[in-house]
Amino acid sequence: MACDELERVLHAFSERYNSNEKLQKMLRKWSVDLLVWCKDTGNGFLINVNNGRVVSIMRTEDSTTGRVKVVGESAILIEMFKGLKNPSHLYLDGIIEVYGPERDQIILDAIVEELWGR
């Protein structure tokens, strides 16, 4: 259930991101595999970003995949990707874990800032 809800939220997030012209222009050279991993359910979603556009979101049970990985409880991830929680606050409190090159992490912050003003 939580997984289905997160999948819906991620699709909505991706649509919002793909339709943001400013972000598309800013990130036109950015390609990454982003793994959103739910530590309570033991599975996650691999978001493939190619030249700045989200091209696919696939369920996965492989926790080692992805160049960037965001880990948290599914309920927290849902709220975060809906824009209801400040990712920086969650990160600083250790509620979510973020792995990956610093530049990619900052790009994620830029996306959040542009979409929700946080």
């Binding site: 080692t64 990985k69 874990e97 973020v98 792995y99 990956g100 090159p101 610093e102 992490q105």
Partner: peptide, 9 residues
């Protein structure tokens, strides 16, 4: 503070 590598972290 780095969090760079997910493997064996």
């Amino acid at each position: 503070t780095l969090g760079e590598e997910a493997v064996d972290y």
